[in-house]
């Protein structure tokens, strides 16, 4: 394989617990997260809420500086590059699409004044050219004719249209990597596929790589080349999409799979049951983070933190029992 566009090596992100007193407690939002992403690849990051998947995206987007570990983009450690504080060079290459299409757009601005910023910040167009550029990206995301949308305020558009505007803003700087944080989960079901297909289209046509975050396994299978499963801040399994779904190794991946709705089967008892809840990340479980809920866990799992091991070429699993 060619050189990866993005590589995370043992990245950890610990947030201090806010509150009274001088407790040195931290939330272990990410621990030992390592993966890489090839150019033009879509990697789906799947997990439940609180699994650390959004934190992973934010760390890559330089919204949080990780506690430890390395993030290498295009061969350079993004936190050690000599650059100005805003790091425009990196920002032009890596953009993020957020979950809430309403929340990601400033309600006090028109679409025009929202979409002109990327061009002006990165000096991609002169003041005179901006309007033409905005119209161009609006057409690219299917908001046609652009004249009908350019002077609207966000509250005048539907959720699906707003998410298109968000995508338009992200692609307007011609990024290499897009971090998509559950971009369809707040949209109506009938337009989710349209947005997902659009994301795929930009990969196919522009070669944009994606880190696609979702909690929907079926959606991940549809869109992604590879799937990475996170649980309680750690990567549990990563491999080719079809393999992770059909031949999952990790008990947690199996659990997720059996919990997903399967209309084709009709209601039936799923073979796997999970006890308990997602553990607190202030005091994460010793050993394997999943052992508190795992049907296969034994004494060893409580003690040892399993390594992310390669089971097959390109398929890694973090479990002692595999």
């Amino acid at each position: 394989m060619s050189d990866p566009i993005l590589e995370l090596k043992d990245v950890a992100m610990h947030f201090p617990v806010s509150g009274f007193g001088r407790s040195k407690q931290v939330v272990h939002a990410m621990d030992q997260v390592s993966f890489s992403l090839q150019r033009g690849e879509i990697l789906a990051l799947v997990g439940e809420s609180g699994s650390g998947k959004t934190t992973t995206a934010k760390v890559i987007a330089k919204l949080h500086q990780p506690t430890s570990g390395e993030i290498i983009f295009n061969g350079e450690n993004i936190y050690q590059r000599k650059t100005n504080k805003r790091d425009l060079g990196y920002r032009k290459n890596v953009q993020m699409i957020f979950q809430d299409p309403f929340g990601a757009l400033n309600p006090t601005h028109t679409i025009r004044s929202i979409l002109e910023r990327p061009f002006l910040i990165h000096k991609l167009a002169s003041r005179e050219q901006v309007e033409a550029k905005i119209k161009e990206v609006l057409v690219q995301v299917g908001l046609e004719p652009p004249e009908q949308f350019i002077d609207k305020f966000p509250h005048e558009l539907s959720g699906g249209q707003l998410q298109r505007v968000n995508i338009a803003r992200a692609i307007s700087v011609d990024p290499i990597l897009l971090l998509a944080d559950e971009p369809t989960s707040m949209l109506d079901v009938s337009i989710r596929m349209i947005i997902m297909n659009m994301i795929k289209k930009f990969r196919d046509e522009e070669g944009i790589s994606y880190l696609y975050i979702t909690h929907n396994l079926a959606g991940a299978r549809y869109i992604a080349d590879r799937i990475a499963v996170m649980y309680a801040g750690m990567m549990m399994e990563i491999g080719p999409a079809e393999e992770v779904i059909q031949k999952a190794y990790h008990p947690y991946t199996k659990l997720l799979r059996s919990a997903a709705p399967q209309p084709e089967k009709g209601f039936q008892e799923s073979e796997l049951t999970a006890k308990g809840d997602i553990p607190s990340l202030v005091n994460p479980p010793t050993g394997c983070r999943f052992h508190t809920r795992c049907p296969q866990a034994d004494a060893e799992c409580k003690e040892l933190i399993p390594e992310l091991r390669e089971i097959k070429p390109g398929h890694q699993v973090r479990c002692l029992k595999v």
């Binding site: 079901v189 009938s190 337009i191 989710r192 349209i194 299978r221 779904i245 399967q262």
Partner: peptide, 17 residues
């Protein structure tokens, strides 16, 4: 056509414009 399946064939799914 808006819900891709977990198992089985993955054809093109379209949603509703």
């Amino acid at each position: 056509n808006s819900f891709p399946p977990l198992l089985g064939d993955l054809e093109e799914f379209g949603g509703i414009p």
